[in-house]
Write a protein that binds this DNA or RNA. Structure first.
Lengths: 186, 186
DNA sequence: AAGGAACGAGGACATTTGTCTACAAATTAA
DNA sequence: TTAATTTGTAGACAAATGTCCTCGTTCCTT
């Protein structure tokens, strides 16, 4: 996680140091949950290895995959973290995971005291916004087939490692339909 | 705009003062564009009065309303502002507008120099993220009818002031279908 | 005030996508 | 290794939504 933050070239060496004392190590077994809807997000994790999936549920109980995150990335239920309200997200381990964990209160304290930390959070939130805007765009501009084709191009790793049912809801279609699209494409 | 920023209770009086010299006044006629796709976003506007609409275009040229903003709010092509790349958004005046304008470079300079300004941008970007996440959620969880009903509840002002064709693409349906939904509801 | 454009409703039909179901292959667990 | 679960494919049909078009109405413009 240290080198992840370092790579932004925002934090001073001193600011970066502060992170060391605040980080703990944790593993998560396949299928286990990092957070469930209704909980309040209190921590941010950095994935050393493994895959996390976050999903919402529809009124009828159906799961919608919102986010798929691989190693060397941060993950949290961001909206709940920012607002301090119960989250709609469930974050579940798709594989066994190795994580580094930092508490929200420690991060918020850092960002209130150090300019670099405030700035890096601005940047991280901005990244999330940009990613989401792009997805919203795709969802509204492209039909299901194009969205799938784009996914194949831009995020091969998803198509290779994630079961179809999760990809389907990520693309906002049913598994049945995604299977149909696969058949069409080949 | 001053009191808008003040209401966050983040900026010191001194920090707030700095804004005065950077603000200019501008009007925009109904139908005119604040920015067009392909342009690079270089300013943020505060709407004193009037309504702005931002929209993307589909490959076939069809317009998709992305954002509808009323008086007493900020507006900009955010992703382009953050990335410095050409935008996909067109921002157009739905009515005649009175605006206060600040240049991106001035805002960025402020945020690099003053903690409060950095923090307030973090907060503003976070707000945009939260709003967008909520919309993404609605788009994936609810069917068209529910999305429209929710719009009626949460954003009455849109339904009252915005033509159906724009509401339709905002909700990701065709005008024909939205008309159908209206008939169903009443 | 008159003409033209934009707007919203709605009919008829097409297309996309979802639902339900079954089945075989692949994966996992015992 | 065998049984059990999960996964992906696919047929048949249904529902949601889009396309194309027409018709009054309202709203601008001149």
């Amino acid at each position: 996680m240290r080198s992840y933050f370092q790579s932004f070239n925002i934090l001073s060496e001193k600011e970066l140091q502060l992170l060391n004392d605040l980080t703990t190590y944790r593993t998560l077994k396949k299928g286990a949950f990092l957070i469930r809807e209704g909980d309040i997000s209190k921590e941010v994790v950095f994935i050393r290895s493994g895959i996390l999936r976050s999903f919402f549920t529809k009124p009828n109980g159906e799961e919608i995959t919102y986010c798929l995150t691989f190693g060397n990335n941060l993950m949290t239920a961001l909206s709940s973290l920012l607002e301090g309200k119960p989250t709609h997200e469930n974050i579940q381990a798709l594989t066994t995971l190795e994580l580094e964990v930092v508490k929200k209160e420690d991060l918020f304290a850092l960002s209130e005291q150090y300019f670099g930390w405030m700035k890096i959070f601005k940047v991280l939130v901005a990244q999330q916004y940009l990613e989401l805007e792009q997805r919203m765009l795709d969802l509204q501009r492209l039909d299901a087939k194009s969205r799938y084709e784009k996914l194949i191009q831009d995020r091969k790793e998803l198509v290779q490692h994630i079961p179809l049912k999760h990809l389907a809801s990520f693309l906002n279609v049913t598994p049945r339909h995604l299977s149909r699209l696969r058949a069409e494409i080949s």
